[in-house]
């Protein structure tokens, strides 16, 4: 039987972790979405050097384990006199890592909008940017929502890796409680439940958004 006293006695510790996981996820989500969009535009813009930067970033970052990126930022940067807390280093690593996947999702979305849409917009006198903003991106976003939702869910789960730099998030607090009480199974069940409290609504929200956008077509 699940030991609920573990939960009630350590509730404020769990809550602290829950809050930090929310913070980290939210900050990394915003950051990776902005960085990912910029990288996606780099990759499709008709300017070769930008294409290269985008491609190099995406291919390097998404093919390196998150843990290594995290170690590089947390233990590598101090070599250059840049010292970051576990929380900041963790958020940065998560953002840098996730941005590569988001860039790919957004790029695929933009490329899946038929070429004729850009031609129609440009031939009526709209600039490249106007055509992107008013015609291409609104159509691409619909296509991008399901893969983007997946990336956001992955991001929340991946934040558990941050326990290694003591970022104070859920996994770290779980480790703390478990090493103090010598209870493992029950503690991590509760940790999992807290993760679900974040990821399940995210998942359902994406599904609903997807359905609503499909209707408007």
């Amino acid at each position: 039987m699940l030991d609920f006293t573990i939960l009630s006695e350590n509730f404020d510790v769990f809550l602290e972790g829950f809050k930090n996981t929310l913070y980290v996820s939210f900050l990394a989500l915003i950051g990776s979405f902005i960085l990912g969009t910029i990288l996606a535009i780099f990759r499709i813009a008709p300017i070769k050097p930008l294409n290269w930067i985008g491609t190099i970033y995406v291919e390097f970052i998404r093919n390196i384990p998150l843990l290594i990126i995290l170690f590089f930022i947390f233990t590598g940067l101090p070599v250059f006199e840049i010292r970051l807390s576990g929380f900041v280093a963790g958020t940065l690593a998560l953002m840098i890592y996730t941005a590569a996947f988001i860039a790919e999702a957004i790029r695929a979305g933009i490329l899946s909008v038929p070429k004729g849409q850009m031609e129609a917009a440009r031939s009526s006198g709209l600039t490249y940017t106007q055509a992107m903003v008013h015609v291409i991106l609104p159509q691409a976003i619909k296509i991008v929502i399901p893969p983007l939702g997946n990336q956001f869910i992955n991001l929340v789960k991946n934040s558990s890796v941050l326990t290694i730099v003591a970022a104070g998030e859920l996994m770290y607090q779980g480790d703390l409680i478990s090493s103090r009480t010598f209870v493992t199974f029950d503690v991590y069940i509760f940790v999992a439940v807290f993760y679900l409290i974040i990821t399940l609504p995210l998942s359902l929200g994406v599904n609903r958004l997807e359905k609503r956008l499909a209707l408007s077509n």
């Binding site: 004729g116 129609a120 009526s124 006198g125 600039t127």
Partner: peptide
């Protein structure tokens, strides 16, 4: 080119209306 294209309308084989 954008200034120039104001004066030239174009109709395509596949209409290319904006579906959204």
């Amino acid at each position: 080119i954008n200034e120039f294209r104001k004066n030239v309308g174009m109709v395509f084989q596949h209409f290319n209306l904006y579906p959204n």
